[in-house]
């Protein structure tokens, strides 16, 4: 396991996973590479994720941003289907039930199962729908990935069935930007839009507020972030964007403090 991944898993202790590195810095002046493109030649560098060594050359194996750090070359995806990892917090909906748990659609091609043992409270085994029903939305964590599928858990603080609010979906590759360095972007968004936001690493994001207009404002800001090609100076751009939108939508934000359900 590389260093970055370890960091990620530690950070998953909290609901909104924080990025230690600043995505704005990573993407700054980064080169975009495509499959088959030669990135480096010689033995000074090591091929990391998304690359391979071929003789003397390190070749890209996917379309994405080039990341060269400590002689390790990686390609950070800009697009693509969500690749589940243990420890990821994801949002999904119940699409089927078995005798001992629920199947959750987390926008991944692999089956995801939430066992009745993993919801962290009493479950009436005779009627699982009392706990979670079809189409219910949950925020859960990936406990394990096995060949037959993904095991989810809700046995941690903050993992729960979601009520109210709205869901939006962005490409999972854009999730780090929405979270920002040490969660800075998502904190700012919450503050500035008066909403609660839970970012699933599968790209599904829940936005909740008392007033649906605040949710809409947050939705727009997140889509703004996701649609930017590069994120050079993004925090400032987003602040400006929010100011303009607030004027347009004629809404003022009553900041809502950290809620008990969230912390």
């Amino acid at each position: 396991m590389d260093k970055k991944e370890k960091k990620n898993i530690e950070k998953d202790e909290e609901i909104n996973v924080e990025e230690k590195t600043n995505p704005e810095e990573i993407e700054q002046d980064r080169k975009i590479v495509v499959p088959g493109e030669v990135i480096e030649s010689g033995s000074d560098f090591l091929p990391g994720e998304g690359t391979r060594r071929e003789g003397k050359e390190i070749v890209s194996m996917r379309f994405g941003l080039l990341d060269m750090n400590d002689k390790l070359i990686k390609v950070i995806p800009l697009s693509g289907a969500y690749v589940p990892r243990p420890g990821n917090v994801v949002i999904g909906h119940v699409y089927d039930m078995t005798f001992n748990g629920w199947l959750i659609d987390i926008a991944s091609p692999f089956n995801s199962f939430l066992s009745a043992m993993e919801v962290g409270r009493f479950v009436n085994k005779n009627d699982l729908s009392e706990t979670l029903n079809f189409r219910d939305i949950v925020v859960a964590k990936i406990k394990d990935i096995k060949s037959r599928g993904i095991d989810l858990t809700m046995r941690e603080r903050g993992l729960k069935r979601l009520e109210g609010g709205m869901l939006i979906r962005i490409n999972s590759a854009k999730v780090p930007r929405v979270i920002g360095k040490a969660g800075s972007m998502v904190s700012m968004l919450k503050q500035e839009t008066g909403t609660n936001i839970i970012v699933g690493q599968n790209g599904i994001i829940w936005i909740g507020a008392e007033d649906v207009e605040n949710e809409l404002l947050a939705k727009k800001a997140i889509e703004f972030i996701a649609n930017k090609p590069f994120i050079h100076g993004l925090t400032e751009l987003v602040k400006k964007f929010l100011e303009d939108e607030k004027k347009k939508m004629k809404i003022t934000i009553k900041p809502i403090g950290p809620t008990t359900e969230e912390n």
């Binding site: 909906h93 709205m166 649906v212």
Partner: peptide, 23 residues
Amino acid sequence: METSELTKQRIEELLEKGKRLDD
């Protein structure tokens, strides 16, 4: 993606006020 029940409820609430997701 299927539209979630939560989002559907919000769309209906917005519509009550004569508003939509995209202004």
